[in-house]
Write a protein that binds this DNA or RNA. Structure first.
Length: 843
RNA sequence: GCCGAAGUGGUGGAAUGGCAUACACGACGGUCUCAAAAACCGUUAGGUUCACGCCUGUGAGGGUUCGACUCCCUCCUUCGGCACCA
């Protein structure tokens, strides 16, 4: 039996005599044991409560960084804790293996992206393994394998069947560096999410998924996510962006109708011009044969050439041109000019607005610049406002004026009344507009899932039949990196037969956005080897939802929105029973160094591998968990690592100093009764506190600190006392309480304490209130809000008794000299607050 | 501009209406040692006092309360997200 205390050879700075433990030996030993015994293999057991804990699976870059370490450590602690609580835990891992980095690496090194990815996965697995994570490796998956992406194609075809996958020509976001299109969610601050290059617009024929069909459900579903961070909910809510308003119909001279969306129908009488987005389909009709034609066309080209970033920048001046055409305001028959301007966006609302310069700041600035008319239609209460005095638009609510029959109403009333009136007179229609756009999924890249579509000259767009799946991504493809879908150059792939008419046809050569792969992988983990379906419905019924999901905030509106969309779609398809995939969400904070994000360019990266070599995985885990709460940012510091290491050594020494485990029970120490109680009481208190911290939101840092307190308590004992039965009981509790955080060393200590099984087969220690209960409580005594003394009182003491005790206290008496007591507040078990005023009777 | 989060010792952080600064890091002092390291013990918000103490103190200011880091109002600062959304 291993009982020895080894001197670490890797850490020169802390080599003591029998002070340290050999983490290298211990970690390797237990990782091997766990693997061989398949300790973390999971299977559905209908009679057992399940717990599905999942961390956002990694992109296999080949190396893990501190962000990964933190993310997966948090998940691992939760998984191990739930195991100890008797749950049937599912804790899988896989790789989000399609994507551009592999393709770029392939271009650079002239290798195959598949080979590169597999090598990265292997390297990464070794690193993950060294951290001691409790993954069920039998469920490992990689999205780049045909057995996985076949089901991406299957889901796509189901969507196509339901009209939720469609192709359309439109203006799309284009990254000039990645040479591919981007979804709206992938444009971050006007730049590409991957390389930050300013995104430009391009008119292309592309595939979309109709996520907007689920706008309402995606929005209302947010209310059911009680255990998601407020921040993420808000971000999704804003992203979906529901606004209520009215669509108003303006007649044009040529008989066409221009639809305009507004959230302020109460200002319609103040509309003095209308503005179209430069891309608006009516613009070109309106200017035909007008003197303005040439100028407007020039302006449209100019806007089209601008990057999105340049167009929507804060300080960019709004520019526009008069089209020469007019529209009729339906409420008063007024003929108002139609302009084209860059501040109106085609992708929102109807791509056209009614401009009310007096009550919209953007319209105000634009009208001033271009000498357009203005009319006040809303005034602040009890105040007159005049156009001549206005220095900015009045955007608040107010009283309607110059608005015909609606004069005198408040804007809130007016909004409702005008909407009703317009509907009645067919001038417009109450409507809702969304900010959310359909999800553009075509990518002009190689390393992704082929879109299972065939183009036939006779039959048109034909889906690949289900039985012909997967459409396998061809290997050995020459990727130039010069743009254009690489699959387009693979003759054997492109040329195919039409599934309908058997004539020659062509395959779609774009691949799917990789966010599609990750939109349902959590379902695949329920039955990862299923060959008949994306996942087994019964298995999913047992394991889903993910009880605890953990990942970075950067996916607040990308992955987390798409996954919700897919789950809702699969529910409608009858594949899954729930509408929301993730019950609880924890967004872990970033790992910083000197207050800055770790990055190659800043040269401030701390490599987990080096830290593991120097301190071991347990110490690294402990430091990361102890240094900050999981949601908060964590500033890396090396001395903190030493602290974590020292603590583990302190615990280790207590265990290592015990005589051979077999003799322990006989070796009753000689504890004084008072001491005896103190250790046992502290143990029960600690178990209670740690349990509460784990249950009430995973407050690992405070859980660990309370375990430290218990350890400190043991160090206050004499050496013989440290070997007493009571101390050993406390040590056993410590080992189990610490096990989720530092699993290897706890396995070893559990073994040293005579444990025959893995510590994770044990159950979480329980506490007994009877041991925690105090006979006496210390009451704080405040006089006029300041702490002046303390008294001890029995737990059972009545308020009256406590009051008398407080008033009898000599220090309190001193403070009450010359003033008279007005009121005494007793908070049972806590404090007495005495309110007193000067006795001189002035008041 | 809008939305969100945060602001506490030299540092990371704890306390969500009841003793502010648990736990840890760092620093200082001590024990052990020829010495150092390690380990162990102690001190460590500021001011004031020989001392017991007392006063001040959780970004700023105000309010509610017997009592506020905690709740409310008005600001300031930092970070994050969104941003011509009609």
């Amino acid at each position: 039996m291993y009982l020895g205390v080894h001197v670490s050879t890797d850490r020169k700075s802390l080599t003591g005599k029998t002070m340290e433990f050999d983490f290298k030996h211990i970690e390797e030993k237990w990782q091997k044991v766990w693997r061989e015994r398949k300790l973390y293999r999971s299977q559905s057991l209908p009679d057992k409560r399940k717990y599905y804990v999942l961390e956002m699976f990694p992109y296999p870059s080949g190396r893990i960084h501190m962000g990964h370490v933190r993310n997966y450590t948090i998940g691992d602690v939760i998984a191990r804790y739930k195991m100890l609580r008797g749950f049937n835990v599912l804790h899988p891992v896989g790789f989000d293996a399609f994507g551009q980095p592999a393709e770029n690496a392939a271009i650079k090194n002239n290798t195959d992206p598949g080979k590169w990815t597999c090598e990265c996965i292997d390297r990464m697995k070794k690193e993950l393994f060294r951290m001691g994570f409790s993954y069920d490796w039998d469920r490992e998956l990689a999205t780049c394998l045909p057995e996985y992406y076949k089901w991406n194609q299957w889901i796509f075809l189901k969507m196509f069947e339901k009209g939720l996958a469609y192709k359309k020509a439109s203006y799309v976001n284009w990254c000039p560096s990645c040479l591919t299109t981007l979804a709206n969610e992938e444009v971050i601050g006007g730049g590409c999410w991957r390389c930050s290059t300013p995104v430009v617009e391009k008119e292309l024929d592309q595939w979309y998924l109709k996520i907007t069909a689920y706008s309402d459900k995606l929005l209302s579903g947010l209310d059911t996510l009680k255990n998601w961070p407020e921040r993420v909910l808000t971000m999704q809510k804003n992203w979906i962006g529901k606004s209520y308003g009215v669509e108003i119909y303006f007649k044009l001279e040529n008989g066409e109708v221009l639809r305009v969306f507004t959230t302020r129908p109460d200002t319609i009488f103040g509309a003095t011009y209308v503005v179209l987005a430069p891309e608006h389909p009516l613009v070109k009709q309106l200017i035909v044969n007008k003197p303005q034609e040439k100028e407007v066309l020039g302006f449209i080209d100019k806007v089209a050439a601008e990057s999105k970033l340049a167009r929507v920048g804060t300080d960019v001046k709004k520019e526009g041109k008069f089209t020469g055409a007019y529209a009729i305001n339906p409420v008063n028959g007024e003929k108002i000019p139609i302009w084209v301007a860059d501040y109106v966006l085609m992708e929102y609302g109807t791509g056209a607005i009614m401009a009310v310069p007096t009550h919209d700041q953007r319209d105000f600035l634009f009208a001033k610049e271009n000498n357009l008319p203005m009319r006040v239609v809303i005034t602040p209460k009890d105040k007159e406002s005049r156009v001549e005095d206005m220095v900015e638009a009045y955007e608040d609510e107010g009283i309607m004026v110059n608005s015909g029959a609606f004069n005198g109403y408040t804007s809130a009333e007016g909004k409702k009344k005008i909407a009703l009136w317009m509907e009645e007179k067919l001038m417009g229609k109450a409507s809702v507009h969304w900010r959310l756009r359909d999800w553009l999924i075509s990518r002009q890249r190689y390393w992704g899932t082929p879109i299972p579509i065939i183009y036939c000259d006779s039959c048109g767009v034909v889906p690949v039949p289900e039985e012909a799946l997967p459409v396998v991504l061809p290997k050995n493809v020459k990727i130039s990196g010069e743009g254009g879908s690489p699959l387009g150059k693979v003759k054997s792939f492109v040329e195919t037969q039409c599934p309908k008419c058997r004539k020659k046809a062509r395959r779609e050569t774009d691949t799917m956005a990789t966010f599609l792969d990750s939109s349902w992988y959590f379902l695949r983990f329920c039955s990862p080897r299923d060959t008949k379906a994306p996942f087994d419905i019964e298995e999913a019924k047992y394991w889903m939802p993910v009880d605890q999901y953990i990942g970075g905030i950067e996916h607040a509106v990308l992955h987390l929105l798409y996954s919700r969309f897919f789950t809702k779609f699969l529910k409608d398809l009858g594949q899954v029973h729930l509408a929301e995939p993730f019950d609880r969400l924890l967004t872990q904070g970033m790992v910083l160094k000197d207050g800055e994000v770790m990055s190659k360019s800043k040269g401030n990266i701390v490599d987990p591998d080096e830290i593991i070599k120097k301190y071991g995985a347990d110490t690294l885990r402990l430091f990361i968990l102890f240094a900050a709460p999981p949601e908060a940012e964590l500033d890396w510091n090396d001395t903190g690592m030493d602290g974590a290491w020292r603590f583990l050594c302190r615990v280790w020494r207590l265990v290592a100093a015990l005589p051979h485990t077999g003799a322990l029970r006989k070796d009753k120490g000689q504890l004084l009764p008072g001491r005896h109680c103190a250790v046992i009481k502290k143990m029960h208190k600690t178990i209670k506190k740690v349990t509460q911290d784990m249950e009430g939101g995973f407050k690992f840092n405070t859980a660990i600190s309370s375990i430290m307190e218990l350890v400190n308590e043991l160090y206050r004992l004499s050496e013989p006392e440290q070997k007493s039965e009571e101390a050993v009981d406390a040590l056993r509790a410590i080992v189990t309480l610490l096990a989720p955080f530092v699993p290897h060393v706890c396995e070893e200590m559990n073994h040293m304490l005579g444990g025959k099984e893995s510590v994770f087969k044990a159950s979480w220690p329980s506490f007994d209130e009877a041991f925690i209960k105090e006979d006496e409580v210390s009451y704080v005594i405040q006089v006029n809000g300041k702490v002046r003394s303390k008294v001890n009182a029995g737990v059972e003491a009545s308020e009256e008794e406590v009051k008398l005790l407080a008033l009898g206290d000599p220090k309190v008496k001193e403070w009450l000299k010359g003033i008279s007591v007005k009121k005494i507040i007793v908070v049972p078990g806590k404090l007495v607050s005495i309110v007193a005023v000067p006795a001189s009777g002035r008041g």
